[in-house]
Design a binder for these strands. Structure first.
Lengths: 267, 267
DNA sequence: GTAATAGTGTCTATGAGACAATATCCG
DNA sequence: CGGATATTGTCTCATAGACACTATTAC
């Protein structure tokens, strides 16, 4: 806050959503195809400008989320990722965007939003690898969002948000494997998850599968913070990220896991 | 990003800085006393509006930092904390503020900034406890910043940023103790820090102290990410924070340590 | 039976935490 | 020397990871 009497310049404020889900054991992100310039025809994150001066930022994000998904917005969580406001990131002028991260269980095909020619799920690795062209700085926002999800999987019960109301321990393992991009030992994972009291709780009957022994079914427990954390192996960070996801380090306080993967770090 | 042809509302964009340092083994935050309304005479974070439409957000933050401290800005690190943009947080209108976290070694008394009647260091616990009145939502911003620092201490070499160019292992321990608000065993801390290769490296001669055996001197090493992390004990999180720092939970994915202590989380 | 997945038991290496013991300064 | 702090050593317990083994289904 400054007290300068002179009138400061104004900016346009937008929200962008990184909505992640699992489809066929792979991490996907929801993208829309832009219907107008700039970047007409290019894939982009769902987002919108603030509708009016009194609209809260998270309120705008929540509204956008409900437009893009058919889910009950009240059950979904939104977490602020950060601000992306480089001058020149949007040719229309000074647009500052607040990015949010949302995790969704397997969804039906998304309903096309008002301003979206098409909305659909895209594998995260295709996005990160540069296989797909993205509008604005949205590739970086997605990379930051995925890294945030990776970290949160270690320390919070976020993984259950990828699953439906009930799930098996194997389901949960697939979440970790997809987001972290590695394989885990099912037996150690099983014990680890079970031992973390309150993480998951039994939910009735066993679920039969086409083959093999039916698995017990669980639902998310009251515990939201994993203590001790479910540490991801070193490979899960260094290996995959350095080649694809992370741009050259800009700040010494970021590296392995994106402990400081928050946008806007500067030296 | 939305494609609506209609003109969206604009907001004023500001940056606010949470600058932390250690003084007499206690965590302090830099505050200025506001010279004009609103909140004239109240303590607040140093901050400013964007100077012109082409100014980058981090550039603005860096500029504000150099105004408030005499330090070489190039050596300091700025990390984005989040966006604080609730309607009504600023009586002057729709002001959205991007908060940054900076860690500083022991500084000389700060130079009064242009718009500050006075600038000075204040113990963090007095701020968090509500002992001191703060302008706007700055108490929450500070709480978020401190929590971020606590987490980063676990996973990154951030602690060295609190120290001068060289320091002893005991110096480093005091950083952890002050930020985490607990006491650590010097012997275990010593080994732990030494074992983490690249965290700190010897820097020449031993430093003599008034009493006791002189300690070896180190400087920050190349390693910026601690792997495995320097886990803080459970008491360091739950105990202190629940009473003072954290408001009632708003999101199930936050609790112990502020894994998700990023602002703006909503259900 | 076999195939396949779920779940349990066990061993080992490593790290955390407690804490005794030693080293090196000042006076 | 005694007081104080630094540094090293050692012991114990808990956990992670590897992996053999048993259980329960479908066919």
């Amino acid at each position: 806050m400054t007290d300068d009497p002179w009138v400061p310049p104004v900016v346009l404020l937008a929200v962008d959503l990184v909505i992640l889900t699992l489809r066929e054991s792979r991490l996907h992100v929801l993208l829309i195809e832009r219907g107008v310039d700039p970047y007409k025809g290019t894939l982009a994150l769902p987002g919108r400008f603030l509708q009016h001066s009194g609209e809260g930022i998270t309120a705008a994000a929540r509204r956008e989320l409900s437009e893009e998904t058919d889910l009950d917005v009240a059950t979904l969580r939104l977490e602020q990722l950060g601000v992306y406001g480089d001058p020149g990131r949007d040719p229309r002028g000074r647009v500052v965007s607040v990015a949010y991260l949302a995790i969704a269980p397997r969804l039906p095909e998304p309903s096309a939003g008002t301003d979206a020619a098409a909305a659909g799920w895209h594998p995260s690795d295709r996005v990160l690898s540069g296989d797909l062209a993205l509008a604005f700085d949205h590739r970086r926002i997605i990379a930051d969002g995925i890294e945030r999800a990776r970290v949160k999987l270690e320390h919070s019960a976020l993984a259950t948000a990828f699953c439906g109301p009930t799930f098996t321990i194997t389901d949960l393992q697939r979440v970790y494997e997809a987001v972290w991009g590695i394989e885990l030992d099912p037996r150690n994972f099983y014990r680890k998850v079970q031992k973390t009291e309150g993480f998951i709780v039994p939910a009735g009957t066993a679920r039969k599968s086409a083959t093999g022994r039916p698995a017990r079914v669980f639902r998310a427990g009251p515990r939201t913070v994993l203590h001790p954390p479910l540490v991801r192996p070193a490979e899960a960070s260094s290996a995959k990220e350095q080649e694809s996801e992370q741009p050259p380090d800009r700040d010494p306080h970021r590296t392995r896991s994106g402990v400081s993967s928050h946008p806007g770090e500067v030296g």
